[in-house]
Design a protein around this nucleic acid. Structure first.
Lengths: 351, 351
DNA sequence: ACCTGGCACTCGGACGAGGTGAGTGCCAAC
DNA sequence: GTTGGCACTCACCTCGTCCGAGTGCCAGGT
């Protein structure tokens, strides 16, 4: 898009096409465009602009003599030029509050959030559990399952609770009358409580040296498991809701059956990777072919981080978002996602 | 079906119709039946039998001059007459072991199970977390979140971990130097550990009387929450997997879009209620219209209990099952579900 | 330099008419 | 009670036709 004067209008045309197509799901033609929006020009002019837009790859026609449909590139351009985020309606704000207030524990907050987002955007909603790596340890609990198996429960400051079973060597050289498990518990707690999990590995090294000899075996096994399974980013979990919304619009969106999409969602990892490094400050939009994973071409993801952590406020506890057809209401979804994330962030900060 | 001699053959015909229809998804006609199965009679005879079967409501034709399709009643009859459960193939048995061995904690076992079942049956798999009411308390942990909020973590003998946030009154009359939270923790543990949750309410009454006065407020609040949220059967959770399998066979199964089904699955409660009181000893099949909930008419659920508890062995820890179109391989799914449940039961008993 | 009305052209989708074939019900014969 | 034969019924496919929305292009106007 070079030039000055006409480009402004072409952008308007593109915007109009996207809007119409999103709301009607029918390829939009020049005449209809001229009628529905009052750009000050005739359909013929619009036709010329459309030809240019098509040339440049922003729109395409499904077949000759049909209307135009935005391409992924078109949506991308449209989204990038979305200057102001349209504010949510009062009803929507109220719905958010009503839905989320009264949630007590973390599971509850996340569950409500995902239902809320799904309902608000009429799409699939996803929310990531607060990343362990960026959480701090609030408490560690150790329960003996069998002589050589311990259950370790980790409670973070965000209220997330994770448990792992650890196979441990038998304790042979304990002083008479000692309770190794209890000792291990106090030891672990004094070493880890308050520490960010990302920094756990250094604490582990310390601990291994200072621990009384008869506990070394236990400490080694437990902390190995902790570091390995908790700091690994792969262990992040995802909550998904509103998959029924995928069937809106019949088989029109997702023509090649929505099987690959459902598979990708169940895969979790795929979506997690996409949400990757979302920041609370800025909404990330990933459109159609931009998504590498096969199942997600044909779909778009609108996501944002929630719960700022650290001084700059640009690291998130986790991400939340919305998955839908590329033909989605980007403006609306971006607004909804952002508003909900902000509210969730507040909720988690309170507790 | 009255009579003696012909009825045997009619049953065979019904069986053949079900089998053919399940495997081909095409209404099956008399001629095709005669060709594929060698019942010792001609197509004309089969036509007569079919007419009777239709009269009696076991089969129906989508339109005149099409083949016959089993009705729900037909499937029901078929299932009830499934005498011997067909054993799984060696490959399948091996798959089960390979899939489930190496699972450590409960989440892992359930997650693997659901993936396994989905893959094995090519349908949607569901598994219920071990019912809290039938589990025993292994450990209770109390963590202070704020002056008036406690996080209570419950660990059961099945390895299930549940947490709840409890709002508690401030402790005013504690003796100097006491740590009310620690006291509460030991108090709760000594009272509850080893007890079945179903019997918890009586223990609560005892505890309220014997507890030192300054802890009464805490105990009351915490045990109220415990009883309320944990013993209520509504709190059972469900793990679902393989929803992508719903799209097999295009929109042929589930013609009225699979939206209601997806919604019902997300509802959880619906499925949980259906699985209701499954016993480990016997596979429950619920077919089409038999399911009260709207979303599930058109689908069948094959479920069974896993993990026997109690002396009789007829109470289950929870249920697991498979959801699919009424046009499903009942024999195969029943076998798979039973085998997997047995294996899961063993796994959980070991730990 | 750009906009506009007009015009010929394209092509998907809807509609209707046959033709085909799988499947049925019924009947007379065995 | 079983069987072969036969007339009948419809869903479905294919083919031709028509219609209209939409396009590209061009000549004329500002």
């Amino acid at each position: 898009m070079v030039g000055v004067a006409h480009d402004e209008r072409r952008l308007q045309v593109l915007r109009a096409i996207v809007q119409d197509y999103v709301s009607t799901n029918v390829p939009v033609g020049s005449k209809a465009l001229a009628a529905r929006h009052d750009l000050g020009v005739s359909s013929a002019t619009i036709r010329n602009d459309m030809a240019v837009l098509e040339e440049e790859g922003y729109i395409t026609q499904p077949h000759t003599s049909a209307g135009r449909v935005p391409t992924d590139k078109g949506y991308r351009f449209f989204v990038d030029r979305l200057s102001q985020v349209k504010p949510l309606s009062v009803a929507e704000r109220r719905a958010i509050e009503r839905f989320l207030d009264g949630a007590l524990d973390l599971d509850d907050v996340l569950g409500r959030t995902v239902r809320l987002l799904a309902q608000l955007t009429r799409n699939v909603a996803v929310i990531q559990y607060p990343t362990l790596a960026r959480s701090a340890v609030r408490h560690l609990e150790v329960v003996q399952l069998a002589t050589n198996r311990l259950l370790v429960v980790l409670i973070t400051d965000t209220g997330r609770v994770e448990q792992r079973v650890v196979e441990v060597p038998a304790v042979t050289d304990a002083p008479a009358g000692a309770d190794p498990v209890a000792e291990l518990r106090t030891l672990l707690n004094s070493a880890f409580v308050g520490a960010k999990l990302a920094e756990a590995s250094v604490a582990v090294a310390d601990l291994l040296e200072t621990a009384p000899p008869h506990l070394r075996g236990l400490v080694a096994a437990v902390s190995a498991t902790l570091v390995e399974t908790l700091v690994e980013p792969g262990e992040d979990r995802l909550l998904i809701g509103g998959t029924a919304n995928l069937t809106r619009g019949g088989a029109l969106d997702f023509p090649g059956s929505l099987r690959p999409l459902l598979e990708a969602l169940e895969e979790q990892v795929v979506v997690l990777r996409l949400m990757g490094e979302v920041a609370p400050s800025h909404v990330l939009v990933s459109i159609g072919e931009e998504n590498e994973h096969e199942g997600l071409t044909g779909a778009s993801l609108v996501s944002v981080g929630y719960g700022s952590v650290g001084g700059t406020g640009d690291l998130a506890l986790g991400g939340l978002g919305v998955v839908g057809p590329t033909r989605m209401d980007y403006a609306g979804n971006m607004a909804a996602v952002r508003a909900v994330a902000r509210y969730v962030g507040q909720l988690l900060a309170e507790s």
